[in-house]
Amino acid sequence: MTTATTTRHAAGVADAVKVYGSGDTAVRALDGVSVGFPAGRFTAIMGPSGSGKSTLMHCAAGLDTLTSGAAFIGDTPLSTLDDRRLTLLRRDRVGFVFQAFNLIPTLTVAENITLPLDLAGAKGSREWIDALVDVVGLRDRLHHRPAELSGGQQQRVAVARAFAGRPDVVFADEPTGNLDSRSGEEVLNLLGRAVRRMDRTVVMVTHDPVAAAHADEVVFLADGRLVDRMESPTADKVLDRMKAFDTKGGRS
């Protein structure tokens, strides 16, 4: 006898449509996308420029609203939340890592990491923060300020800050875009360790096949539609799939 298992999704969208503008100038950035991002997994979103990958992330994270369809964090449909409750959800259940590090220059590394908790008036678990500091490898930098750190170290602080409140999901938008290849590799390995050693969930938008190869799965968008999924990606397999978009004349 076989037992069916149900995948729990940390976030996702259903029949997602996003249209910018109107009339002849309207742009359909998402065109009926349905995709779930499994909890405890590292998912990368890829596609040609203009494919809708960043729009998908922004709508799934509650940073932008859909024209139609639904976006969820866990079992919570974002469209049912007013501005205040949506803000609280993003604060308490979602973490963000962006290409720009967005650290507060006057705060130390330790203060930057715990900033979301401090702003929320919450007391995070000391054990959790200590474990997080060890995972990101910043214990000897806790009293430094951002200007005293390399770019890679600053992004590691940003990653630690994103995970500090134990969010349901962390969205990373081109997190290695401002880093050299070695620092980028360190940050990607860090995201992977957070998923596998701390049971976190990461959804990352990237244009880089090498970055995508760090994920458990890659979802591919083209012209605002979900066109493929790839388990256990490698850089070569992802690159080959992206070349197929060029061959088929995907929108640039």
Rank of each mutant, 00 (worst) to 15 (best):
H9W: 14
A4I: 10
A162D: 14
G50S: 07
T2H: 10
A160G: 07
T3K: 10
M204L: 14
D140E: 15
T43M: 01
E148K: 12
L226K: 02
V157T: 12
D228I: 06
G69T: 11
K243H: 06
L191S: 11
Y20V: 09
E185L: 13
A122L: 12
T176W: 08
I113C: 03
I73V: 15
S34T: 15
A162C: 12
F72R: 08
R229M: 07
R126K: 10
Q153M: 15
K18V: 00
M46I: 00
V170I: 14
I104D: 06
T206Y: 05
G95Q: 10
L179T: 12
R200M: 14
F72L: 11
D15Y: 10
N189W: 15
D208Q: 14
G184Y: 03
A211K: 02
L226H: 05
R156W: 15
L221R: 01
R161G: 09
L149Y: 09
G74Q: 06
F37I: 11
T6G: 06
A162S: 13
P209Q: 02
P209G: 00
G250C: 08
V133K: 04
V109I: 13
Q99V: 15
A44L: 00
D83C: 07
D208A: 11
A4E: 12
T87H: 03
D31G: 04
V205N: 03
Q154P: 15
R93G: 07
L56P: 01
T25W: 05
P38N: 02
R126N: 03
V17G: 03
L188N: 08
V195W: 03
T108H: 09
L66R: 01
S34E: 09
E148R: 13
A235M: 03
A4P: 03
H214L: 09
R197E: 15
D246P: 02
G36L: 13
L81N: 09
K123P: 05
L78K: 02
A26Q: 07
T247N: 05
T206M: 04
R91I: 06
G47M: 04
G23P: 02
W128F: 07
D228A: 13
E217T: 02
A71L: 07
R200V: 06
S125K: 09
R93M: 12
T65M: 02
L191M: 15
A14D: 14
V169K: 07
V157C: 13
A100L: 14
R84L: 13
A70K: 07
P209I: 00
D64C: 01
V227S: 05
D240P: 02
L119T: 10
V187M: 15
L132T: 10
D75W: 09
H214M: 10
N112W: 07
V33E: 05
D64Q: 01
V187P: 13
I45V: 04
L81I: 14
K53T: 00
E174K: 07
Y20I: 12
P105Y: 05
L63Y: 00
D236T: 01
E217S: 03
V227I: 15
A211G: 06
L89C: 06
V169E: 13
A60L: 05
I45A: 00
T106M: 10
P105Q: 08
R90Y: 02
M57K: 01
D240S: 06
D130N: 13
G151H: 13
T65D: 05
R196E: 10
H58A: 07
T234R: 00
K123D: 10
T87F: 09
